[in-house]
Design a protein around this nucleic acid. Structure first.
Lengths: 219, 219
DNA sequence: CTACTTATATGCATTTGACATATATCTAGT
DNA sequence: ACTAGATATATGTCAAATGCATATAAGTAG
């Protein structure tokens, strides 16, 4: 920022936002992909994304892309990492700010049914991806595993009311290991992030579990 | 990335890299600042930074700025976060990728002595800063505190051989609290990150402590 | 009313970490 | 050479956290 500048002197360069939208499907992490309709990488799978408007903040651009693909407004969303290697896009120099969103699988069924260019791909069987999008997804998965224990992120993958069993399933899907049930239950309650509602789940064949919800923000 | 594109159609927009270079000085975290020589914010303090070359990767740009200010090549360096609010720079739309570097204070004394536009400011008494650089520094401090317990970052602030006492001083400076000595010592040794060298520190007035070094990478 | 399955609670051994205390080793001074 | 002083290093104890096994509770299905 200490160099001289001249707007007209800047060679063509674009900034985009790419979105890693993850959910848990059938006990496995899955990511939303979009089939590209144009070159380069036409017909290959890629992360949804778009150019950042000249008067649009990065967060707003990510929000817009999320709303465009998932019709959502209040999902968990945070900036992930930026990728800008000179050769990552053959058209021109493109720097992308990757964002990371989490959503319960149920909220994705509508857009998935409505749009044939979208698909939900399990992380362990990803198709070949355009650009460096595979790297971006790997970053997201690592971030998610790292945050799981000290931040209330798993709840973003669950409906507002959930059982402790469902919460454990989400944790096990993210970590890829099975957890001890009584220990997990105690640990979750001790975090102070959740509280029981007194209500029970319905429809089960056996003893119904209590439904919990996220506390209204302690601090 | 699914929209149509035309390089000439993109309004002027620039990508910069800003560098948060931290060190521990007198038991306190400090950050390297540079006095701006040009408008906007002329003569105010700011993070060192610069435009990303059109054929330069983001990491390379950060490396270049680090070498330019500190004359260094092998410091700990990682990408921090990206900031791109439309109004953050009055000249034009500028998206900055902030990078985070750590260096032992001793390695900064030469550049600080040689260049009068550079200064090392303790985090708790920062001067007013240009742009959104105060926010960027706050992000860096939070990141550092969060990584301290599960990643070997503190060693980047120490010389190759260090005593456990010096390591504890670094941790205490970062966390802002004092730690229990025997517990800290066991915890550090149990991480497997360090090993004793058999050598003792010299020059002290009392019993010399053993010098440790970082292990050559376990995994 | 009983069998079955899952939720929830409890007991216990092991581990982890904080804290207090003891021992070791150096320099400086007499 | 010896002692005092200061710091490094090691150990012991206690409390909290964690993993695992087991017991009890609460529903459905027959």
């Amino acid at each position: 920022m200490s160099q001289s500048y001249d707007p007209g002197a800047f060679p063509p360069l674009a900034v985009t936002v790419d979105l890693v939208l993850m959910t848990v499907q059938n006990g496995h992490l899955a990511v939303l992909l979009q089939r590209r309709s144009e070159a380069p990488h036409k017909d290959e799978w890629a992360l949804p994304g778009g150019f950042v408007g000249i008067d649009e903040s990065l967060d707003d651009a990510a929000q817009r892309i999320l709303a465009d693909k998932a019709g959502l407004k209040d999902a968990w969303l945070e900036q992930l990492y930026s990728f800008g290697d000179p050769g990552r896009d053959p058209r021109m120099r493109i720097v992308t700010i990757a964002y990371f969103a989490l959503l319960p699988a149920a909220e994705l069924s509508a857009p998935l049914a409505a749009r044939s260019d979208l698909m939900l791909a399990p992380l362990d069987t990803l198709p070949p991806l355009a650009f460096d999008h595979r790297t971006i997804i790997d970053h997201a998965a690592t971030r998610l595993r790292g945050k799981l224990d000290y931040a209330p992120v798993a709840f973003a993958l669950l409906p507002p009311r959930f059982t402790l069993r469902a919460l454990q399933d989400v944790h096990e899907a993210i970590l890829g290991i099975s957890l001890n049930k009584p220990a997990f239950r105690r640990r979750m309650i001790d975090t102070g992030w959740i509280e029981g509602t007194g209500e029970k789940e319905s429809g089960g064949a056996f003893r119904p579990a209590e439904l919990y919800r996220v506390k209204p923000r302690a601090s």
